[in-house]
Every structure is written in C-alpha cells, then in structure tokens.
Amino acid sequence: MKASAFTYYKPNSLEDALGLLQNEEDAKVLAGGQSLMPMLNMRFVQPETIIDVNGIDELARISVTDKLEIGALTRQKTLAKDPTIRQHLPIMQEALTWVGHFQTQSRGTIGGSLCHLDPAAELPMVALLYDAELQVASASGIRSIPMQEWALAYMMPSISHDELLTKIIIKPWQGSHGYGFQEFARRHGDFAIAAAGCLIKIDNNIIEDIAISIGGVEDVPRRFTECEDVLRAIKYDIDDIKMQVLKPLSKINYLDDSLVTGAYRRRLLRGLLIRAVEQAAGRS
C-alpha cells in the first residue's frame, strides 16, 4: 500500500500555487491530506503532481466582520477551539465533535472537507445551513460560489482543476435562534450513516425561520429545502412536525449500498431530523 510516484511542489504563495495549477495537467491539491493520503496509499488516485498548499499562510486565517471569513486551510483542530467560531458558529464546533479523531483534526482542513465532499461530511452540512459563499481562485481571477451550488455530483464540487478553494464566508444568523446537530454513526468518529443539522428561529411559538441540512443520505450533502418549506411559518409542535416531515422525507433519493440500505437511511434520518429540530428549538 505505497503511493505511486508523483512530483511534489510546495508553493509558498497563492500566486505560485495558482500558477502550478494552471500548468500541471494531472495535479491534486494536498491540504490536510486526511482523505487524499489514504487514496494515494491505496493507489485509488495516481496523480502525476501533488501541489502541497500547506505553505500558504494566508489561507489559514479566520477573520470576522459582519461575516466570518475562514481560510480554506484552517485546520479542524483550530475551528474546534477557536473562540470566534465558538461565539459566532457554535454549531460548527458541535459538528466537529463528530469529525474523525483528534489526530486527524490536527491536519484536516475545512477546505479539504469541502473539496473532498464526502456525502456524509459534517462541515459542508454546516456551510449549507448558512448558505455560505465559497471563494475559489485561479490564475485568471476569483469567483464566488454559493454553497447550494457547490456540490455537482457524488464527491464532485464545482471547482475546476486549475482552481483552488481559498475561503469560506459565512454570515451567522442574527437575533435569537437555536441550533441542533444530530448524527448517527456506528462508532465514535466514523462517517455518518445519516446526519441532520438545523437552525431555527421561533417567535411566539411560530417557526419564523428554519434551515435544515442533511448528510449521508444522498450522493451529496444538501439543504433539505422541501422540509424547510413545510415547517416554515407553522406552529412549533413536535408531534405535528413528526408528521409534517414524512412527505419531504419521501422525496429524498436515498443512498442504497451493500452496507446500508436506503430504507434504513430513511428511518434513521427521520429520527435524527426530529431530534435536531427539537434540539435547535430547545436552544432557541
């Protein structure tokens, strides 16, 4: 289980990195390496070139105005402990308790999670809840992609081979609201079989606003807008919500594989979704 040979570059500036991306035909970007390295070791991917972006310090910064700007190279361990994140995005830290193990969080990055785009990855689910804006750069400029348009297909983000994800911009919800994040995996740190995240704003027992993201159940993590639509503006009554979610749940195209059936994912998601909504409401 040794990687096939490749040429390794470690640019120290964004400009250099983008230049390399433009010139190298068959290159993979190496950030935290917690998904790419196993694939290299198993020879599932055999790129000619590896571009290690770990030397580009500007990609590893967190800044805050009315929005949070999180550099793509920010490590999961940093996000898990950063006070700014704790203050403005507590759900991200809660979601991170489900992400791998502390040894993988030492190197794993938010940009890596978003670009690898595992169907069950938690950080994309958080980005989805806030309609995050993703900034990608290439030698020809910068473009911005709304999170809901990021996932094109199974493990395929909307980024071309000469582009690099540089930052994730999140606008936290204002005013009183609650958050919930529920996931089920067989063991601590495993990829979720299903997961649900929820932001909720309740006023006078009416759901004023709600955002739900789901992971592990379809080819890509996504916003569960069909469900948000039926829950928005109704009275907060958990027994009613249990019934309301049934129809949207039936519209999901559940993953069905040799390890877990779609039927189970559906039952599981229903339970988790209810728990996430309850948890969010409890915190609102």
């Binding site: 190496l30 390295m37 196993p38 070791n41 290690d52 193990h101 040894q103 190197r107």
Partner: peptide, 25 residues
C-alpha cells in the same frame, strides 16, 4: 489509511497519523 492510529507521532506538538503525511511535509 489513517484509521488504526498505530503510526501516530507528534509533529510540532500535534498528534498526527504518520501514514497520512508525506515525509517531505
């Protein structure tokens, strides 16, 4: 492939999987 943890070493204070980091890194 980064799951068993047997290869864990400490790099600049952080526990990391030494199988998931290139030597050159």
């Amino acid at each position: 492939h980064g799951v068993c943890g047997a290869c864990t070493v400490i790099v600049d204070g952080d526990a990391v999987r030494s199988c998931l980091m290139l030597a050159v890194q």
